[in-house]
């Protein structure tokens, strides 16, 4: 019984070997069809001299040092810009203040700012 099973397995292995030797091959028409589809789907090669957008931009800006300089200038500009916004607000806060120059004279009040214009 065991010998018979071993024989069956040996026969099976011979059949596997035969089937590997006689492997099915794709028909020529399928090979042509798939090859054409592959060409149609293939990305276009990069054009000589054509570089990607970002590397070109970086190069135009003077490389990394140039880009660093622009970034630093931007930060400085931002600081000055914010300073310019904050300054007038602080001054405006005092625009409504008045100073009385006469003792007890509530009728004569001089504005603290802009008094020279009148």
């Amino acid at each position: 019984m065991t010998e018979r099973r071993d024989d069956d397995m040996a026969d099976l292995d011979r059949l596997f070997a035969l089937a590997r030797k006689r492997a099915p091959e794709p028909p020529p028409e399928l090979v042509r069809r798939v090859g054409r589809a592959g060409v149609a789907l293939q990305p276009a090669p990069a054009r000589p001299g054509a570089r990607a957008f970002w590397p070109r931009l970086l190069q135009g800006a003077g490389g990394w040092p140039g880009l660093g300089g622009m970034a630093a200038a931007g930060v400085v500009g931002l600081v000055f810009g914010l300073g310019g916004l904050i300054g007038p607000v602080a001054a405006d806060e005092g625009a409504g203040a008045a100073l009385s120059l006469l003792p007890g004279g509530a009728s004569l009040e001089q504005p603290l700012l802009g008094a020279g214009d009148e």
Binding site: A23, L30, G35, G38
Partner: peptide, 19 residues
């Protein structure tokens, strides 16, 4: 990368496996 002939080479190499 768009190399010419790569599609045919891929077909020859891999289609038999799938088929």
């Amino acid at each position: 990368a768009g190399r010419g002939g790569a599609a045919a080479e891929m077909t020859a190499r891999f289609l038999p496996l799938a088929y």
